[in-house]
Computed example of a mutant assay.
Amino acid sequence: MSTATTPAATVEVLAKDCNDNGTVFCPNPKMALWSNHPKVFIDLSHGSQGQCPYCGTAYKLKAGEVLSGGH
Rank of each mutant, 00 (worst) to 15 (best):
P53Q: 12
S45D: 10
Y59G: 05
A32S: 08
C55V: 01
A8N: 13
K62C: 12
A8M: 07
E65C: 00
P29R: 11
Q49T: 14
E12Y: 07
C55K: 07
L61H: 08
V40F: 05
N28V: 02
T23M: 03
N36V: 08
N28Q: 06
V24L: 05
C26I: 04
G22K: 02
P7N: 15
A4P: 05
G69D: 12
A4W: 10
G47S: 09
L61V: 15
W34S: 00
A8W: 11
T6Y: 13
G64V: 14
V40H: 01
Q49W: 01
A63D: 15
T57N: 03
T57M: 15
T23N: 04
C26Q: 03
Y59A: 00
G22C: 08
G56Q: 08
A63G: 06
N36D: 14
G47A: 12
C52N: 00
P53H: 12
N19W: 14
G56N: 11
A32G: 04
T10W: 12
H37R: 09
A8E: 10
V24T: 03
T10A: 07
M31T: 04
P38C: 06
K39S: 04
S2Q: 08
K16C: 11
M1A: 13
N19R: 13
A58I: 10
D17I: 11
F41P: 04
V13W: 04
G70R: 15
C52D: 04
W34G: 05
C26F: 01
P7H: 05
C18H: 02
K30P: 00
T6Q: 12
D20W: 10
T3V: 08
K39A: 00
G69M: 04
L44H: 01
H37N: 02
V11S: 00
G69L: 12
A63V: 14
Q49H: 14
T6L: 15
C26T: 00
P7R: 09
